[in-house]
Amino acid sequence: MILLSLKHIIVKKERGKILDRLSLNVNKGEIHAIIGTNGVGKTTLANVIMGLEKVSNGRIKFQNKDITNLSVSKRAKIGIKILQQNPPSFEGIKIREYLKVGNELSIKDIKRILKKVGLPEEYSERFLDDTLSGGERKRVEIASILTSNPKLAILDEPDSGIDMLSISDLKKIIKELNKEGTTILLITHRGEIAKIADVASLMCNGKIKKTGNPKEISSLFKKECKNELRRRV
């Protein structure tokens, strides 16, 4: 069953089309990896689904309803959540308060979730300002996703800023979230992470070039990268 479908999406900026008639279907319950080199439009795609980026053309459907013109907060309310590639810091907002935005959580729940994402529970009282390291900031955002049991979680490079040792924990968290019923769109350029996906799509120049099994798409991606490398050299 299709949970999310994008059809002929175009996003234009001054310098041209960033997404160029992109179409994509994501089935309910799957982990769907989006793989592509820097600048192909992965983050733009994530933002389009969340409503953070306006489309010049195309339709987005979620649970068979057209959400193309739905606001960001309404999309959040119907169960779409995003982990941004570079989430901003906030002055004067505690992690505990941030995690409670948009939901009711007890301090016990918060501490449990912090532990799960590998942060000490004292961090609930820490401010979400720029004194947090990049990896810690990312972990808070993963925690935020876990608080809300979304129907669809868009994870834009959840592994960036996370150290090698913790990658296996991250994979475990994503798999668990998926088991609990969350469909996952997993944006990455690390084959290692893509391994946990059920399906993968290769993205090139603002388009989905091919969708298939993750192994096949990963090797295709490697070939693409080699070709690209040859072109650059």
Binding site: V72, S73, A76
Partner: peptide, 8 residues
Amino acid sequence: DTLMTKGL
């Protein structure tokens, strides 16, 4: 934007 993605 980020707070709006949490439903605000």
